[in-house]
């Protein structure tokens, strides 16, 4: 009997099993949000209100707008996204689903990756609304290079979602933790907000230079470091 081949098939089956479970956990969150619409409408509304308030406040020249729009966009994305990230754990605990989720036959790391993916999708949903809105309200060429904007958005989303998911999970287990999570995440996420804002600004210039690429590398490094750290440390967060 070929044990090696049998082992390979076993591994393959296990991978497929984990991927299927990961998909089901994501599907559960997305489907419950779609049916109840509890967080995303509030999150999108917050993003739109922040964008409008920025537009009202900004009596700036087109050049100045181009300089500042990246920071304003990413701050709006972060604050609106924190609503979704907070609720992703608080809702589980409030409705008594947390113990059930942890007793699911997968490791807590898989739960972390499922939550991270859903939070990154939530951030992408905000961007789908906010980027065109900023273009319309401030008349800035954010979509001049769609692929460059897409690259920055993906890297920024993964970075924010990686650290936001880990720390929201941590804060959800603490008394009045929901009030703490923004306070915990904001100082740590500053490299992503700075990097994404700068990369967004440089992406609107005539040529994409080395500086744009350097900021993208920083965003990529942040995403890799904190996705790995989250996968390792989430076990300790959900221990009890």
């Amino acid at each position: 009997m070929d044990y090696g081949a049998r082992g390979a098939v076993g591994r393959h089956d296990k991978e497929r099993y984990v991927t299927a479970k990961l998909w089901w956990m994501m599907h559960k969150d997305l489907a419950s949000e779609w049916r109840a619409r509890r967080v995303w409408p509030a999150m999108l509304l917050l993003g739109i209100v922040v964008a409008l308030m920025f537009a009202v406040q900004m009596g700036l020249s087109p050049e100045q707008k181009q300089e500042t729009v990246g920071s304003l966009l990413w701050l709006a994305i972060f604050f609106a996204g924190m609503l979704a990230m907070d609720r992703s754990f608080v809702a589980e605990r409030e409705e008594g689903c947390w113990e059930g989720l942890l007793s699911y036959p997968v490791s807590p790391t898989a739960v972390y990756f499922a939550k991270l993916a859903v939070n990154a999708i939530a951030l992408a949903a905000i961007q789908c609304v906010l980027i065109p809105l900023f273009v319309a309200l401030s008349d800035v060429p954010l979509l001049e290079r769609p692929w460059a904007m897409l690259a920055v958005a993906v890297l920024g989303n993964v970075g924010i979602a990686a650290i936001g998911t880990l720390l929201s999970g941590l804060a959800a287990g603490i008394r009045h933790g929901a009030n703490l999570s923004v306070l915990l995440v904001l100082p740590l996420v500053i490299p992503v907000v700075l990097g994404a804002a700068e990369a967004t600004r440089l992406g609107m210039e005539e040529t994409l230079d080395a500086a744009w690429w350097r900021w993208c590398q920083l965003l990529g490094a942040f995403a890799v470091v904190f996705t790995t750290a989250g996968a390792v440390l989430f076990d300790f967060v959900v221990e009890d």
């Binding site: 650290i163 720390l167 941590l170 740590l188 490299p191 990097g195 470091v225």
Partner: peptide, 16 residues
């Protein structure tokens, strides 16, 4: 957990 995340973050903050 929070302290370890912070220690990883400090070099990236300095770089950024």
């Amino acid at each position: 957990v929070l302290a370890i995340v912070g220690v990883f973050d400090v070099p990236l903050v300095i770089m950024a």
